[in-house]
């Protein structure tokens, strides 16, 4: 099943938003990089490249990655690099951090994981998909 179809099939709340695998994959250049595709509820989708060893996600202005959504806590979660992987960790948020529908305290992220913080939905894409495509 194509990634686009997977996302719309698994996520009825974002069924009006279709994303194509191709543009996402084409954005990924540097080795070890990853991006988030964000659907923050009412506002428009955006793409955020993960460049820092630690990225704080939340509603507060101090966050590296700000989600201006009421159901997102001020400091909701952090994403950090551990070895060659990225890990998401809940920071004691009110509404929890979910990966593919499961509430987690911490979770190693894998390509095309769906993360939900409050009403905001984020998809995680690893750079390695680019290599697969290129070959």
């Amino acid at each position: 099943m194509a990634l686009k179809e997977q996302i719309s099939a698994s996520d009825p709340l974002s069924s009006t938003i279709l994303i194509s695998e191709k543009p996402v994959v084409e954005e990924l250049h540097s080795k070890g990089s990853a991006v988030f595709k964000v659907y923050p509820g009412s506002s428009r989708e955006k793409t955020v490249r993960i460049t820092l060893p630690e990225t704080i996600i939340g509603r507060a202005g101090e966050c590296h990655f700000r989600l201006d959504v009421p159901s997102v806590s001020r400091f909701h979660a952090r994403v950090f690099a551990r070895g060659h992987e990225y890990v998401i960790e809940d920071l004691g948020s009110t509404n929890g951090t979910f990966v593919n529908g499961v509430q987690v305290l911490r979770c190693v992220l894998r390509h095309s994981d769906q993360i939900q913080l409050g009403q905001a939905k984020i998809y995680f894409f690893e750079e390695r998909a680019c290599h697969r495509k290129a070959v």
Binding site: E85, V87, V99, N100, G101, V102, Q103, V104, L105, R106, C107, V108
Partner: peptide, 13 residues
């Protein structure tokens, strides 16, 4: 009921 397939690197409280 929440159902999932256990996955390495996942921590639940």
């Amino acid at each position: 009921m929440t159902l999932f397939w256990a996955r390495e690197g996942m921590t639940l409280a």
